[in-house]
Simulated assay, not measured.
Amino acid sequence: MKPPAPYLPPVSPALSDADQDALTDLYVRGTPANTLRAYERDLLYITAWKSARFGTPLDWPESEATALAFLLDHARDLSDASDTDVAREAAEALIAQGLRKSLTCPAPSTLDRRVASWLAFHRMKNLTGPFGAPQVKQARAKARRAAARPPAPKSAHPITRDILEQLLATCRGSRRDCRDRALLMLGWASGGRRRSELTGLMREDVSLKEFKEKGLAWLMLLETKTTAKGETPRLVLKGRAAQALVHWIEVGQIKDGALFRPVSKSDRVLKRRLSPDAIYQIVKHRLKLAGLPEDFASPHGLRSGFLTQAALDGAPIQAAMRLSLHRSVAQAQKYYDDVEITENPATDLLG
């Protein structure tokens, strides 16, 4: 099944062809790449769900009855439903297409994201979505509460400093080792970078003007999840992390273009950039070499590990956030709370 074309702004008779093209281009340029990919996946899922559930394509605007059915179908565990249940039959069709993993109730965050995408498609077409209707709105709130569950960590364990040292010890002398050492150290020491931020770095985003004199390397992140274009944060690397980055740039002969690149089996540095999935494979590979389970941590463990280590070392949360670029103090505080509660004197009252 081919992904449907993105539902961008509809053709308006008031606009010329050039203006219509400019409006479509504005939507694409003004939306982060990860969000566009999420929109495409959600649109594919929603389209397939309605086709399986009602045998019809999406309507614009969509009816309140369809929106309510979507919420009800995704607010219960369908593995307990009868084989003739229409919601279960639709779910099984989605599983057969590889669009759904199981009959169990999806996470509230997944449902919220799909609803948000559906609303975004309506706004793109200058239409009002059905999810603002009182009954639909109330059902959505009840579905969220009924399916509430503790959020699963993005990484099974944080990659704290001791774990990071074990991973770095597996990086020896090949170009691939040099790249992985630099990637892991930059990803951790610069505040816990996301995969998209690591793969998006260009050689032009790295300044080494102060490296020889002060041992500093400066990074510019052109766009992150919590900052927009024009708000380019500058982050600093020092010590071993800066040295590892400079060594990789020299060994990989990175003069321009992508900073982190694939390395062939013959240890030749390629020109294209690493994919976000490659970061996952690198972490998985280094965990295995270090004698740890491959699922011990994910790339997000670099981010959670940085904040956890900052809390363990007593670094002020504001200082850690200046590097992690967390927008919410409450979000960053979770890592500090997990550490601080073990040091709370009240936990020793029984002796």
Rank of each mutant, 00 (worst) to 15 (best):
D21I: 10
A319S: 15
G239Y: 01
R145K: 14
M220I: 15
I159G: 02
Q333Y: 04
F296D: 08
P61V: 13
L183Y: 06
R261S: 05
A189N: 01
L287V: 04
S190Q: 10
V283K: 10
M1E: 15
Q138H: 13
E343S: 12
C171S: 08
V339W: 03
E64N: 13
G252F: 05
D295V: 08
E165T: 07
A258S: 10
L325C: 08
P4L: 05
E231A: 12
A91Y: 09
F131W: 14
K334E: 14
P299L: 12
C171Y: 02
L164F: 01
V329N: 03
A75W: 05
V246G: 00
P153G: 05
R113I: 07
L15V: 08
I254M: 08
R179I: 04
P262N: 05
L289R: 08
G129P: 02
D42Y: 15
V236W: 07
W60Y: 11
K225N: 06
L219E: 01
T56V: 15
D17V: 14
F70N: 07
W49R: 01
Q281K: 04
F54E: 14
T110A: 12
P293V: 11
G314S: 07
T170D: 04
A87S: 10
I159P: 06
I282S: 06
G200Y: 08
A48V: 04
K284D: 01
L323F: 07
G257S: 08
S12P: 07
Y27R: 15
A278D: 02
A290L: 05
